[in-house]
């Protein structure tokens, strides 16, 4: 599996870090050797719809799960709504971002 995956960002819950139309490059191997850390910007499978992806920031790490929150917390739909997200849903850490 090639480690780098690209995603196009949609919607505004990660503003000002990411805006619609930005791209992120994700390292799918980032959590192979060590676990996620608070503050990581990650792409994960959407716990409410596993065919889709979400981009969020890790606010807290628990045993086997992470708590995801959007940078634009006032607007964001995240773990505050759907609860902690199992770690297997993490695709990887954002390695690089390309702003529009």
């Amino acid at each position: 599996m090639f480690p780098i995956a690209r995603f196009r960002v949609d919607d505004r819950s990660m503003e000002p870090t990411l805006s619609p139309g930005d791209y992120v490059l994700v390292n799918r191997w980032s959590y192979a050797l060590h676990g996620p850390v608070q503050g990581d910007l990650v792409v994960a499978r959407d716990p409410e719809n596993p065919t889709r992806h979400v981009v969020k920031r890790i606010a807290d790490v628990a045993d086997g799960s992470v708590y995801l929150v959007g940078d634009n917390a006032a607007l964001s739909r995240d773990s505050r709504t759907y609860g902690a997200v199992p770690r297997d849903l993490l695709v990887g850490r954002v390695w690089s971002t390309a702003k529009r």
Partner: peptide
Amino acid sequence: MSALHRVLRWMDRVSPAPVAYAHCDIPC
């Protein structure tokens, strides 16, 4: 616009990147 963004946009035309949603409160 960064050079990286230009490259990725070009790649997007060849093969669209999946979307990572920065979901809003209610994806209304």
